[in-house]
Amino acid sequence: MAAAAPSAAAVGAAINRLLDLCRANPNGLQQSVLDQQMKDVGLEVVTAAINALLGKGHIQLFQQGGSLIYKEANKEESVKFKGLSSEDMLVYQAIQQSANQGIWTMDLKRRTNLQQPQVTKAIKNLETRNLIKAVKSVEHKSRKVYMLFELEPSRDVTGGAFYTEQEFDVEFISVLKHQSLHFILKQGFATLENVADAVRKSGITKEELRLQDFKQILDMLVLDGEIEEEISSGVGTHAALPPDTLCYRGSKTRIPDSSAFTSIPCGVCPVLHECTDDGIISPKTCVYFQTWLTF
């Protein structure tokens, strides 16, 4: 701190100039620009002015790259933040940065360099003001992550349509899968939109499913070898579709349920690699063979 306190009048003038500068740079006032513009005023005066403004929540301080940026806070926001301590603000900004991914308290602590009780207190303050909210994450079930109140949590956090109560809803997926497959097989072929419409109309779910979700279901069916992708030719059986649209049809060759190799015990034997002619595990004494040959 400077030895002599700067005069109140000088600080008041500096505050006004600072606010003007901030308004002139709505995208943020760089530290370097500020230094240049306020060259004539003493460093102590500028510091005092900035501190005063920050304390009242009239301007906000950001770090961008290596330099500091000042921005004027709009009126509404300054009301919102009135009475919050600087620690609260620090926590708030860290949460804001995490956007719709949310941030975990431990990460908050690390990011802000605050003690655990301070962080907890700040979170409590912010929560009671409805500035932030807690969301349960699917990735780490025991963790709560915080994000700004007005944000919709990202699909990574909620897991998307296929998660119910943070659990991967296998039942739901298998119902959707069967419904889609049934529809495609009944129709012979269908586009993604057809399938989505049919499933939505069938009313098996109240969940709002996007086209991407249906795409995921169909992709899975393709991987299971139940259906195949096909480019419509626009003629013949595809007359109903415009040419060159992607559609799906029932697969002609499903993955066979058995093969010559797997229909004998060795094909599915968990200890095949330990099996030798005269070893403890051997084809002569094999129990799998025994049950296979006596039915």
Binding site: D224, I255, S259, T262, V268
Partner: peptide, 25 residues
Amino acid sequence: RNEVEAIVLQRFGRESCRIFRLLMM
């Protein structure tokens, strides 16, 4: 490929077979 897929299906189940086909593609 069909044969190997059938083997994977039988030995490791439908999900594994799906993963196997995914990686093949």
